[in-house]
Amino acid sequence: MDSSDFTVSMKQRDVVTAVLPVPEQVLPMSNLDLLIPPLDFGIFFCYKKSSDHTQQNLSPESMVAVIKKALAHALVPFYPFTGEIAQNHSGEPELLCSNAGVDFVHAYADIELKDLDLYHPDVSVHGKLVPIKMCGVLSVQVTELNCGGLVIGCTFDHRAADAHSANMFLTVWAEISQAKPTTHIPFFQRSIFAPRHPPQHDESIDKMYVLLSSITPPPKEIEVSNDHLLSRIYYIKAEEIDRLQFQASENGTRRSKIESFSAFLWKTIAEGGNDLSKGVKLGIIVDGRKRLEGREEKNLSLQNYFGNVLSIPYTEASVGELKSMTLKMAAKLVHSCVERAAREEHFSSLIDWVAS
């Protein structure tokens, strides 16, 4: 059987709400949230069947029940995930915290975990094991596999939360399911990201972002092209990352693991190009929480802030340039790209750009 050609059948669909009363309010978007277009992102976790004899008597239904119950408890502190996004009178999105609930699907897939083609998640995971969100801010699907394993897939509305916020929630959810103390209490103080008076932003921001209203709608007849988005999942051993990091570093300057691997990936993609003049862009997500520590309010740490605090700086070089440069040279370009964004002034400029 093709590793992407398997059937997923729904066993049960529910709506999970917070187990305790939560604030019913309108949570405004910060200026950093407003940079994010309407898009979703997904994440999934794969679990083998437990070899622990004490766990062998748990049926799939029992395991799903534990997961669902823990979700209802995790939604209490993370109550924005139970709401929905709507437009205010100014046409801007805002979070309606109404405890409307999270779509929760219990499904079954006729495939074993070892046979999943995780290298091509677009066809084997998306829409099968990770749900397509139809409404709300978060959707969850727990899928039994015929080997006894489980896959937990979640789809988040990116306008409400970034990966850091989602990871806080997932950590608390896992801790509750294992009856452990929770380690994160989120806070939602949007005033931390108020713009300066008057707003002032670096001109480079104008090249990174444009207003949606200024983008020309695509033509009805879209020309067929070989350029299209692809998702890939890579498994790289630690020693290989260490080797790339060693090769990318020079003169006592040690590049980070993400800079080293990104430079390698950038060059690898260029190697497949024949048009030497064609540009190849590389973007890297930078979390601004540590860069904006000066904006923290008393007793509040930005590490527990719920929302979007990210930037995606990019750099570009031609296929010919990337083929001719060494990994050290490529890593230096990547580092310069990240360094420009990894500053408080960069994120303050982003906040001000939205306000201006």
Rank of each mutant, 00 (worst) to 15 (best):
F193G: 08
N251C: 12
V224G: 05
S260W: 04
D275W: 06
G279C: 09
H228E: 14
R289T: 04
P198E: 13
P195Y: 07
K257Q: 05
R295K: 15
P195H: 07
V286I: 14
T268Y: 02
G288Y: 02
K220S: 07
L244Q: 00
K237G: 01
L212A: 13
A270F: 01
I205D: 02
S262N: 01
F246G: 07
P219R: 11
D242H: 02
W266A: 03
K220V: 07
G252T: 02
K237L: 06
N274E: 14
S191D: 14
E203Q: 14
P199N: 05
L212D: 09
L230P: 08
I236G: 02
T253P: 06
R289A: 07
F261Y: 01
S256W: 05
L244V: 01
H197L: 14
P195W: 06
E250I: 08
S191K: 13
P219K: 10
E296D: 10
R190A: 09
I284R: 00
K278V: 09
E240L: 13
Q189W: 06
S277F: 09
P217F: 09
D242V: 00
Q247F: 10
P217V: 06
D275E: 10
I285E: 03
I233F: 07
A248M: 03
R232Y: 04
T253L: 12
N226G: 12
I222A: 13
E293M: 11
F193N: 11
L265D: 01
S249I: 07
E259L: 00
Q245N: 13
E259Q: 05
I284H: 01
A194R: 13
R295E: 12
F264M: 05
L282Y: 01
E259D: 03
E239C: 04
P218D: 14
P199L: 01
G272F: 10
K290I: 12
R254P: 08
I222N: 10
R196I: 13
R190H: 07
Y209F: 15
R289K: 11
I205V: 15
P199F: 07
